[in-house]
C-alpha cells in the first residue's frame, strides 16, 4: 500500500514538474532585456520615482507646452488633440510611421514638427531642441507601460529592411556593426560598462552622462562616434530606418518613457 502511494506521489511530482516546465517554456520564451534590468538598483529606483526621475521635469515642461498656443495659427496642441492622456495614449508605441499624405516614415519628433508647420504655422524645432524633446517625452509618457506595437503598414517594410541592413553592416575605423555588440555580446562588458541589448524602450531618455534629455538619434550618434564611424547628418533617413528596425525588434516590450540611463 505504501509502495503504491509512493508511485502515485512520484507520478504527481513528475506531472507537476512537467507542467511547470511547459509553463516555463511559454513565459520564458521572451529573453529580451530592457536596459532598465541591467542598470543598478539606485538608478532603477530613480526612474521609478516620478519625483526623482529628472525626465519627469521634461514631461512636466511638455505638458505646459501642450496647452500653449503658438505660431501664426495661434493654436496649441490641445486645441486639436484635447487632453493628451486620452488622445496620445498608445501613439508613441507605434512610431516611426508614415504620416497621411506622406511617403517617408517620420519619428515622433518629426511628427510633432509636421504638426507645427502644417497646423500651427510655425517653424520646425531643430533636432535635440529642449522643447521638442519635452513634447516628445510628454506624448510618449502617455503610453508608459504599453507594449511597443509597430504598425502593420507594408510601406514600412522596405525602410525596416534598410534599418536591419545598417544594424548588421560593419562601419567605422573599429569596423564594428551594431549587431556585434548588441546581439553577439550583449550582457558582457565593454570598458567596464554593461552592453545593453539596445531596445529603444524609454526614449527620449534622461542620460546622466548628458545631464539632459536626449533622443534615440543622439544615442545612435554616440554609438557611431564610439565605433569611430562618421555620424550621419541630423536629418538623415538612416536614423529613422534604424529606429524602425529597433522598434520591430523590441515589439511587445513595455515603453518606459522617460527612462533614466547611466
Amino acid at each position: 500500500m505504501t509502495r503504491r502511494l509512493l508511485v502515485v506521489g512520484l507520478a504527481l511530482v513528475f506531472a507537476a514538474s512537467y507542467a511547470a516546465a511547459q509553463v516555463g517554456t511559454q513565459s520564458g520564451a521572451d529573453k529580451r532585456r530592457s536596459g532598465y534590468q541591467d542598470m543598478g538598483e539606485a538608478l532603477q529606483k530613480m526612474q521609478d520615482d516620478d519625483t526623482a526621475n529628472p525626465g519627469m521635469l521634461f514631461v512636466q515642461l511638455g505638458g505646459q507646452l501642450w496647452v500653449k498656443a503658438t505660431g501664426a495659427a495661434d493654436k496649441s496642441c490641445a486645441d486639436c488633440h484635447g487632453a493628451a492622456a486620452a488622445s496620445m495614449k498608445g501613439v508613441a508605441v507605434r512610431y516611426p510611421a508614415i504620416p497621411s499624405g506622406g511617403d517617408l516614415p517620420v519619428d515622433l519628433g518629426g511628427r510633432i514638427n509636421l504638426c507645427r508647420t502644417e497646423h500651427q504655422k510655425v517653424d520646425r524645432l531643430p533636432p535635440e531642441n529642449r522643447d521638442l524633446l519635452a513634447l516628445a517625452a510628454y506624448v510618449a509618457h502617455q503610453s508608459r507601460g504599453l507594449p511597443i506595437a509597430p504598425p502593420e503598414d507594408p510601406r514600412l517594410e522596405v525602410f525596416r529592411q534598410q534599418g536591419a541592413e545598417i544594424y548588421r553592416r560593419r562601419q567605422g575605423q573599429l569596423n564594428l556593426s551594431c549587431a556585434i555588440c548588441h546581439d553577439d555580446n550583449a550582457g558582457r562588458k565593454l570598458a567596464g560598462i554593461a552592453i545593453p541589448e539596445a531596445h529603444p524602450t524609454g526614449y527620449p531618455i534622461y542620460r546622466l552622462e548628458w545631464q539632459a534629455l536626449g533622443s534615440l538619434k543622439r544615442r545612435l550618434r554616440n554609438c557611431l562616434v564610439g565605433i569611430r564611424a562618421e555620424a550621419w547628418p541630423l536629418d538623415a533617413p538612416e536614423y529613422t530606418a534604424l529606429e524602425l528596425y529597433l522598434m520591430e525588434r523590441a515589439r511587445g516590450m513595455k515603453l518606459e518613457t522617460p527612462a533614466v540611463r547611466p
Binding site: 516620478d50 519625483t51 526623482a52 519627469m56 521635469l57 521634461f58 512636466q60 515642461l61 505646459q64
Partner: peptide, 8 residues
Amino acid sequence: MSNILVNA
C-alpha cells in the same frame, strides 16, 4: 516658467 518636482 519653472519646472519643479517636490516630494513631501
